[in-house]
Simulated assay, not measured.
Amino acid sequence: MTTKRRSVASRGGLRAASAKASTPPVTPDGRYIVVRGRLWRRSNPGLPEPRRLALVEELMEARRAVRDALKSEADGALAAARRRVDAAKVGLGERGPVWWTDGTADLNRHMARNTPYADWFAGLEAAEEPASGSEHRGRRARRPSGGA
C-alpha cells in the first residue's frame, strides 16, 4: 500500500516571501547558507559556469519529476527522480565529498549555534531582534486566566 505524501505547502503553509527569506545568510568562508538556524552546504564556487547551469537545470527537472511522481504515487518513478536530485546535488557539491581542500569537516545540516560558526551566527540573530523589544513577533499576548 502506498501512502500519499504531503506537499511542502500542506505541511506548514506557503513560505512568506520577504527580503530576508530570499537571501539567506552565508557563512564568512562561503561554504554554507543558514536556513532556520541550520547550515546547508553551498554549491562549489569553482564549477565552470556552463557546468553549474547544466546541473541546476537537471536539479530543477529532477525536482519536478519528484513532484510528478508524488502526485501519481508511482514508487519506481519516485525513487528514480530522487536519485536524479541526489546526483545533481552531488555534482553541484551540495552533497557528497566536500569541495574545499583544507581538511575542515563538513557541517552540513548542523545547527549553526552548535558549530564553529556559533559566534558569527549569534551576531546575526542579535542584529535581527525587533527594535521594539517585543518577544511576541506578531502574536497576541496571552491574557491571564481567572476572573477579574
Rank of each mutant, 00 (worst) to 15 (best):
R95P: 09
A54F: 08
A16P: 03
R95V: 01
R6D: 06
L78R: 11
D102E: 08
K71F: 06
T2R: 12
M60A: 11
V90K: 14
L39S: 01
L39R: 03
K20L: 13
G12Y: 00
D106L: 07
T27Y: 09
A54N: 03
V34G: 13
A127V: 08
R64S: 10
T2E: 15
T27G: 01
A118G: 10
W99T: 03
A65D: 14
W100C: 05
E73F: 06
R142K: 06
R140A: 13
T27A: 02
M1S: 12
G30A: 07
R38L: 01
S145T: 13
R63K: 04
R83N: 13
E73P: 08
T23I: 13
S7R: 01
L78V: 07
S145R: 11
Y117A: 08
A81H: 15
K89P: 15
L59G: 01
V85S: 01
G93F: 08
R5C: 00
R142W: 04
L14T: 00
N108Q: 13
A77P: 05
A87M: 12
P45G: 03
S7N: 12
G123R: 07
P116R: 04
R41T: 09
F121I: 00
G76F: 09
A17Q: 10
A122Y: 10
S72V: 06
A54C: 01
P130L: 05
L92N: 14
R11Y: 11
E94P: 13
L47D: 12
R15C: 05
G46S: 02
P130Y: 00
S145Q: 07
R140T: 00
A54I: 02
R82D: 01
L124Y: 11
E94Q: 15
R143I: 01
R82N: 08
A19D: 06
E57T: 05
R84T: 10
T2N: 12
P48N: 03
R11I: 11
A88E: 04
R41C: 08
I33L: 12
A126M: 04
R67C: 01
T23K: 14
L78E: 12
V98Q: 05
V66Y: 06
R143Q: 00
G37K: 02
V26Q: 10
A65H: 05
T23C: 05
T3D: 11
